[in-house]
């Protein structure tokens, strides 16, 4: 068993492109759920809006890349408005059911064969990411080395001696852009949350009737949180689509949303850094378990009769699901949450 490899892989993924998608999606949810108490179970649809907005405008309409980004963001805004205007005045679980249904509608429409000439049906779309990767400021044959960081033919490698992180030419670019986005969004979020505006959001989470009785237009604040969180979800969708250079409808299932929640709860809701920490830990755990099990199976540490390699995925997700349930029961505040703050349950 090559533990060094397993560990390196897990660390690589813990800050890699996929983790960034989950971090961004969960940051959006954090604004909606963590701070405002909105139960958006359709974050996958907001990501789909971003991903498909970009793909459709670039591939099907032939628009420039940046137009695709703008259209993706607008699509997320429109969806937030469409879902929010009717439901935000109703009880919290209504938004949950409406968003989960809307997300499923979006996915089924995206995979429908009726429009597969345009959307590619269940196969999805590709061919929209080239302009993004053409922006990479270094060449494919760039080679340099600085301390423990080196670039070899465009690939980034970080060597910590015991373990080594490696990223492909494209992944490196996705990560640079993705982490920049995370940093910018977190800074803006921190300013927003620690302002009177953020205080109103938290008030709404605690008791919206009370906030309403104090002369705040609760509906408008909820809508602002839903739209902003949805836009961040769309950004997650961009990173997701670009990092894989394709969009596929079945990536945007309700499970996608649920894992955003797992990530958020793992890291701690209503904490600025919660989602990032949660996403990193989630992907670290996923990879260390999955890679570890696969290694163990191929090295015959675990006999194939007990578990074969196709069962590793379900098993790991089972364990992560179990982890989430236990976490919610025994440590609902997440990794960096404040226990005291959660002691008074408001609902």
């Amino acid at each position: 068993m090559d533990w060094q490899f397993v560990f390196s892989q897990a660390l690589t993924q813990a800050i890699g492109p996929t983790m960034l998608v989950y971090a961004l999606g969960a940051i959006g949810l954090n604004l909606q759920f963590g701070y405002t108490g909105l139960l958006n179970f359709g974050q996958a649809a907001f990501a789909a809006m971003g991903a498909y907005g970009l793909a459709l405008s670039v591939v099907a309409m032939g628009l420039p890349f940046w137009w695709g980004i703008v259209i993706g963001l607008l699509a997320a805004c429109v969806m937030a408005l469409l879902l929010g205007i009717p439901t935000l005045r109703l009880r919290a679980d209504y938004l949950a059911i409406v968003t989960i249904a809307a997300a499923e509608i979006v996915r089924r429409i995206a995979r429908a064969t009726v429009w597969s000439d345009t959307t590619g049906g269940s196969d999805g779309m590709r061919g929209f990411s080239e302009p993004f990767f053409e922006m990479i400021p270094w060449d494919r044959d760039t080679t340099w080395s600085f301390l423990f960081v080196s670039m070899d033919n465009g690939r980034l490698a970080v060597d910590f001696g015991i373990f080594e992180l490696q990223y492909s030419y494209r992944d490196t670019w996705v990560m640079i852009v993705g982490w920049t986005l995370v940093a910018v969004i977190l800074v803006v979020m921190a300013f927003l949350i620690h302002s009177p505006w953020g205080r109103v959001l938290k008030g709404i989470r605690e008791d919206e009737e009370a906030v309403r009785s104090l002369g705040k237009n609760v509906f408008a604040y909820k809508m602002q949180a839903l739209v902003l969180g949805g836009i961040i979800g769309a950004i997650a969708g961009f990173v997701f689509a670009l990092s894989r250079a394709n969009v596929q409808p079945d990536a945007f299932t309700t499970d996608f949303t649920f894992y955003f929640y797992v990530v958020l709860i793992l890291g701690g809701a209503a904490r600025i850094f919660g989602p990032v920490l949660g996403a990193a830990l989630f992907w670290f755990l996923y990879n260390i378990l999955a890679q570890g099990l696969i290694q163990a199976i191929s090295a015959d540490v675990i006999p194939p009769s007990v578990i074969d390699s196709t069962q590793v995925g379900p098993l790991v997700f089972f364990l992560l699901g179990l982890g989430m349930v236990l976490l919610l029961i025994f440590r609902p505040q997440g990794l960096i949450g404040n226990r005291k703050e959660l002691m008074f349950d408001v609902r």
């Binding site: 196969d123 079945d250 990536a251 499970d255």
Partner: peptide, 17 residues
């Protein structure tokens, strides 16, 4: 579109879909 899917691993979104 033919009934075909790309093999991927490690995406929870796909695992169940």
């Amino acid at each position: 579109t033919p009934s075909s899917s790309e093999d991927e691993s490690g995406e929870p979104g796909e695992e169940s879909s």
